[in-house]
Design a protein around this nucleic acid. Structure first.
Lengths: 190, 190
DNA sequence: TGAACTCATTGACTTAAGTTAAGAAATCAA
DNA sequence: TTGATTTCTTAACTTAAGTCAATGAGTTCA
């Protein structure tokens, strides 16, 4: 067990030796400098990523402002909404740190699913797990005040606040940078 | 092509005759009266649903208030977050109309996946599509004001506003019933 | 080194959502 | 049909987020 991606997959099921070899062989690494744009709004996507190290942010522009959709870090899977589709992307993907990833593409992915049905089964399970987590995040967001959302982030992803600039955190929380600044001040003196 | 569930699946891929028969045979119908609780907070779940007719609402209690997570209607799949797991549910599922569903359970589901790998492949694809939609809803919610969220709902699911009481819509939009009432008034006179 | 930028903070003001309470309208059931 | 209950609306008030503008702290780089 050397590769991070196998470690990740083995959380969900036991991996056969054969599949292990296949995953290792098809694992394709890439390294990006901080600031690299992996996907632009309006363009197409044929790549998905498994993050080994670093941080990727998805965002789009609304009224000239960057609205952060999500931050992805180590062990996260980044699959653009238009991955493998002939529709233009609604958002950007940007490396906000130097980032190392395994890259996948639809061709290899589908070949792998053909050869290893166990892998597709695993993908189904993982997709369902991520979907459940996503729904829980959404619910938490919907039923919380901005201050509660910030406190929750502090609790669940404290590292993110060290790694990411505050105005990006603010838009991720659905508020203005000024508001986040005031919330932080308020918390200190409470 | 008689069954609604096959019509739904065939949107994503072509269904073999064999699979069609299997789906038809394993399709298990149930009808619930309006007001039926399908799942209680704290209890376990061994059922998922494909809605043929009617409406199911998921919600939980926070500070004694019902917080609506989601409304599911015709052609929607309802899979509780703890479906097939030994963890208690965080939320309720309630039929808010007389509702007709196809019921699934983990045993049958896994048997079907064993027999028909094509079906599991399809489930993966569908899970990914739902995940993408879910993320788009979340993003839309995060970057909108309550008024914009209401207008968006009016545009995307106008039928829901006819079928569901306003205070449930309000909590679904993450606001109070009073606020929704004011928003509606504001829109009329703008 | 110092000029230009970026980012975070603060203040004054505006706006809209939350809260509490009361009453009107609609729905349900005896 | 009427009385009870639920749902929706309205009003007065509070609170906090948004907006706009200014300033300060840190960075970058020419």
């Amino acid at each position: 067990m050397e590769s991070k991606i196998l470690k990740y997959l083995s959380k969900y099921t036991s991996i056969t030796k054969e599949l292990e070899n296949a995953v290792n062989e098809s694992a394709f690494f890439k390294t990006y400098k901080k600031g690299t744009i992996l996907l632009k709004e309006g363009s197409f996507s044929n790549e998905c990523y498994f993050i080994l190290d670093g941080c990727i942010r998805s965002y789009f522009l609304k009224d000239g402002e960057e609205k952060t959709i999500e931050f992805y870090t180590e062990e996260d899977v980044v699959t653009p909404a238009n991955y493998g589709k002939s529709t233009p992307s609604r958002y950007y993907l940007e490396c906000i740190e130097d980032t190392v990833v395994n890259v996948g593409n639809p061709t290899i992915e589908n070949e792998m699913y053909q050869k290893y049905p166990q892998l597709e089964s695993l993908s189904r399970v993982i997709a369902e797990v991520i979907l459940t987590k996503q729904q829980e995040s959404f619910t938490e967001f919907k039923t919380s005040t901005p201050e509660e959302r910030y406190l929750n982030l502090l609790k669940t992803k404290p590292d993110l606040l060290q790694r990411v600039s505050q105005y990006q955190i603010a838009s991720y929380l659905g508020i203005t940078p000024e508001s986040l600044s005031r919330i932080r001040k308020r918390i200190v003196y409470e």
